[in-house]
Structures are given as C-alpha cells and as structure tokens.
C-alpha cells in the first residue's frame, strides 16, 4: 500500500474548491493552507495562458522534511504518508526551510479570522490543532481509515484530483498514469520522489 495522487492539469479550472474543502473539513487555522492552487502565467500574448497547479504535501518517498527534523516529530507511515506529531514538534522551522513544495506552515498563535476571539466553529475546529507547531496535509489520514477519500479529492468539481494506491496496478491512479503522455513529479531533480504525479501539462 502506497497512497498517492495524480493531478490532471488539463482538468483543473482553478476553482479552489479543494482549498476550501480542506479548510472547512480539517478546520485549519487562520492563514494556514494545507493545499493551494498556485497560478502560473505562461507564454506571451496572444498565446498567453494561465495554468493552475494544485499543490500540497507531496508525501515524498525521500522527504526532505524528515531528514532535517531534529525531534522525530516528522515521521513516515508504511503507506507513505508523512505525518507530523504536534506533541513532539518544537517549532525549529527546519522542515519549512527544507520542503521544496512550500507545504508546511508554523501555526504561531491561537487567533481566528474574525478578531481576537474565536467563532464557535473555530473553537471546535482549532481544538484539533496545537499552536506553535508545524502543520501540513496528511492526505486526510483519519478519513482514509474510514475508507473515505481526502476532502480535496471529494470536492474536486472536474475530477482533476485522482487518489489511490500506487502499489496497486489496477488502481485508477495507475491507469491514469499509464494513459498519460508524460507524467511527471515536481522538483524530481532534488531526489525527494514525491507521491503526487502531474499529467496533462
């Protein structure tokens, strides 16, 4: 079992529903985004176009964050998911500096989106997070345990995010990868071996 994802760039329309679904479902703190849709402008007029790149923790096979973590707060499960144990994190920020995908954020203080006091929703949602520790996407590990897909995948309007077991040749992720012309991973030259593939560039 090796959880992974394929992102079809031709299908992503930049609606950010995955970003909102993650924020709502996981209740991530103010200013923290476990996934983002980055915008890139390529070409020149009249051939200019905009590409949307959904990015999140790449759950690398060789995680740059894991090797720099001095406390063991970052670990990797057998199914490939890179986890952060907030109880062990001391906030040295080395993992943020090491991650080439800008996937990690330090949640500094317990403040909400609407002033100093938290809304009832924030009170409940933020209780799942520990201030002064680093956060990132965990592929919705708790939902996977219930055989549910991550919030971002469930919410994608166009089916641009395909999630599954990379070790299973019959899984949809591998079928998409086989049919893709040139599947690639981001920053492969850094040797991190991400578990997220992109197709359709």
């Amino acid at each position: 079992m090796h959880w992974g994802m394929v992102i079809d760039l031709r299908l992503c329309v930049g609606c950010n529903s995955c970003v909102i679904a993650c924020k709502a479902g996981r209740g991530t703190p103010q200013g923290t985004f476990w996934n983002k849709v980055l915008e890139q402008e390529v070409g020149t007029f009249p051939e200019a176009r905009r590409i949307f790149w959904p990015v999140r923790c790449m759950h690398c096979e060789e995680p740059a964050c894991l090797e720099v973590c001095p406390t063991g707060a970052t670990s990797q499960r057998e199914d490939g998911i890179v986890m952060v144990d907030a109880q062990k994190c001391v906030g040295c920020k080395a993992c943020i500096l090491a991650c080439p995908y800008e996937a990690r954020t330090l949640w500094k203080e317990k403040s909400g989106y609407f002033g100093d006091s938290l809304t009832p929703y924030e009170e409940v949602a933020y209780s799942a997070h520990r201030p002064a520790s680093v956060q990132k996407c965990d592929f919705c590990a708790d939902r996977l345990a219930q055989e549910l897909k991550p919030y971002c995948v469930e919410s994608c309007l166009t089916g641009a995010l395909i999630f599954g077991d990379l070790d299973d040749p019959n899984n949809e992720v591998n079928r998409v990868l086989e049919q893709a012309r040139i599947p690639f991973r981001l920053k492969e030259e850094l040797g991190t071996k991400p578990s997220i593939y992109y197709v359709g560039y």
Binding site: T71, C89, V90
Partner: peptide, 20 residues
Amino acid sequence: DLSRPLSGWRVILRPQSSWI
C-alpha cells in the same frame, strides 16, 4: 527561536540525519 523553548531538549533526538 524555538516555538517551544522548554521542549528544546528534544532537538538532540535525531543525530542520524538532522544537522540541528
């Protein structure tokens, strides 16, 4: 500089790969 200076002792736990 740590977010949790009082837990600073934890930084000595991973000499196999961490330069910190």
